[in-house]
Structures are given as C-alpha cells and as structure tokens.
Write a protein that binds this DNA or RNA. Sequence first.
DNA 1: ATCTACATCTCGTCC
DNA 2: GGACGAGGTGTAGAT
Lengths: 231, 231
Amino acid sequence: MRLVIAQCSVDYAGRLSAHLPLATRLLMIKSDGSVLVHSDGGSYKPLNWMSPPCALQVAPPDDDQADAGVTEVWTVTHAKTADQLIVSIYEVLHDSAHELGIDPGLIKDGVEAHLQKLLAEHIHLLGDGHTLVRREYMTAIGPVDILARDAAGGSVAVELKRRGDIDGVEQLTRYLELMNRDPHLAPVAGVFAAQIIKPQARMLAEDRGIRCLVLDYDAMRGLDDTQSKLF
Amino acid sequence: MRLVIAQCSVDYAGRLSAHLPLATRLLMIKSDGSVLVHSDGGSYKPLNWMSPPCALQVAPPDDDQADAGVTEVWTVTHAKTADQLIVSIYEVLHDSAHELGIDPGLIKDGVEAHLQKLLAEHIHLLGDGHTLVRREYMTAIGPVDILARDAAGGSVAVELKRRGDIDGVEQLTRYLELMNRDPHLAPVAGVFAAQIIKPQARMLAEDRGIRCLVLDYDAMRGLDDTQSKLF
DNA sequence: ATCTACATCTCGTCC
DNA sequence: GGACGAGGTGTAGAT
C-alpha cells in the first residue's frame, strides 16, 4: 500500500462525471491497483475512488497543465468498464509505501440473523399460544424467515427486517400469495416484524391485512440474558 | 489526519459485533475523530470503522494484554450511540500526521436525473405520437417519473431506472393501481424504462401488462449532441 | 456467473 | 429532524 498526501484535483468519468477542485488530500493506492481519495472528514466513503480491477499510469503533465502547476498526472483506468479516474498532482507532501500482506478478514455477528434467532426462541412475542414451525421455511420463491402456528392452529408467516420498508411488505405479500395456494398451509396470516416500521410500509401492510410487529432488539436480548442467568 | 500502519487486532461492538484478527493494517484517524481500518485490498469500504461524532482514547494494555504483546489499546467511542471500536496495537510500523484543511467537496453530474431529462426531451422514444404531460407527476404516494399521452390520447406512466429491477416494477404497479382509480387519467398504461432490465423484472412487468423499454444512454446523449450541433 | 437480499449501509433531498 | 429514494453502492449467499 502506498500513501500519498498531495495537493491535487481529481476528475472521474464513468457512469457519472465528477470533479474535485484543487485541495490537499490523501491518496491511498492499494496493492490491487485500486485508488482511494480521502479528505480529512466525512465518513468512511472516499471523496472519489477507483475499484479493482484497474491500472494506474503516471505521466508528465502537458504544457497547459505544467503552466497551471501540475507536476504529475495519474490516470487510473478500470480494466473492464474503461471508467477513468484522473488525478492531477500539484505538490506531494508525503509519500510512503508499506507491506501489509493479505488480511484474514472480518468476523461478523450480524443483526438480522440474531433477531431471527431471538424471535424464534421467544415465539410468544407473536401472540399468546403461538408455536414455532421452523425458521427459513423454504418456498418455491425463497425462504420465509419464520413459519409459526397461532393458538387456533392457523399458519403464520413472518417476514423479519431490521428496518421495515415497503420492499419487505412486497416480499411478504409474494410469499403469502404463494403459500395461500397450498392447501396444506392455507389460510396463512402474515406478520411483518422489524425494529422500526416506516409509516408507508405499515400502511401498505395493514391495507393488505398483514399485521405489523415492532421488535425491541435490546429487550429481546434482555430476555435471553434473563434466561441464561436463570440456568 | 493521522496515518498509522500497525499490527493490530480490532473489535467492534455496536449494532453488530465484529472482530478482526491480528494483522498489519492502515489506521486512518481523521480530524473529526473518526477512525478507519483499511486492509491492502478490497474496495473503498474499510474493514472496520467508527463514524463521527466520536472520541479516541489511548490507554496502556492490562497485564494479560501486555503478555500477549499488546503495546497500546485504542478505544473509539461514538458520542451518541456509545458504539465502541477497540484497536489493540501490537507494533507500530509507521506514524505520521498531516494538515489537510477542509475539502471543497465533490461536484457531480448524475445519471438518473439526466436520463429523465433526456427521455422527456425525446418523448417519441416511447412510441410514435407520444407527447409529454410532465416530469415528476405528483400522486398521493409519490411522484411518477414521467407522465405522457400516447397517439390515441391515453395516459402513459413511465418509471425510470438506471437498472431495471423487480423493485421498480412493484413501484410502477403501485402508481398504476392508484392512477387507474382516477377517472381523469384512467386507463393508464405503464412503461418500465431502464438502461438494463433484469430478466425477472421484465417477466414480472410483462405479466402485469407493463411495457419494457431499454434506453441507450449514450445514444440519447448523441441525440442531444446532434440537436445542439444542428442549432 | 447471475441474481437476491442485507448493510454499523452512506448520501442527498424534500417535507 | 424524519422519511424516502438512489448509489460509480459493496458484500455475502444461493441458484
């Protein structure tokens, strides 16, 4: 990895056009050829970048550029799409190279998977008398997050999201349409469960007879802790 | 901005839990306190990070950590959510600080807005005799990208996407359902227009009587260029 | 290889 | 400030 701090201007031409005026920035060149242009603020997203696979070419400035104070022109070209990132270097303030080796990678413990596990373990949150049939109940168009039965023995399909958006309601609707054609399951009720449910999603769901359930992740973890402390 | 190359392991506890085993990585500390952990590959996304507003605290290792070879422990705490990023430093290979100043920011020239403008200007691409009613035609559930009339005077609602996915078909379907209840507009035909249309989206659209239209962005820009050259 | 759904999404924009 | 949609989305998993 090479780290360069430089006064530069940057132009990108690809799926969109973008321009960064002259300023001092960090240029990160990774060993796979990718380039990131970072400012000293904002979030983790660079101001501009080129994703791998790509190739960096360094050229001297033409006369006009040289007159304007440019000392080097970097052209980063994407190997497949031919997108280009052009970095015009005015002054290099720092330049160092480092050997990092390959990274073992991130080990994650996600949220939606955890929510699903917690809800399956505390299936009564769906309502009194509910029982779990199974998680990831497979259908022809994909797995339903949770299939349960209510107190009366009726099927209940649960779609789980961290954030309940319209997409999730549409997804559950497709599952319900399909499952309600299966005489072994029908009638299947729908529950849309999420940590937060957007008003538009709630309206659409309720309009379609789908029940909305807001989950409190921390409280559910609390249930787990209580349980583990009891044993 | 401070740049540190170090052997380190990283733990994040917040909306999820994540762990990075010991390896050599770049630690970028921005002046707003945010921290980015980058490996020498992948894309522009860091392996792990803490977004501002947050505070970095450096502490000596406890005995166990010191025995394991840890020389410093960085704790980055988010000011609002209390999410924590803990970086255990084993060996520092590089450490430098740089003054970058504030960045003037990126100037973008977007795609979907441009597509919409181009299609509105060349509304005949919808078919002979089509006329534009208006862009961003407002409905109760949001704006339809383009409303037009066909040669026979019938309403045509156009949903525009760069990539035509199932979501877009669902969105257009909702608009059509609503608009077809309005006697001033009904019957309203649907056109799903995109630079590329996924096979599954095309199938769903055609099954619902929605016409699919693949747009050639470069050709449309060409139309514009031709026109501007003519005048 | 393609498609689908998730993301510590991020980021703008509109209300 | 919240909601909503787009992203040069990236990323992981399933088909």
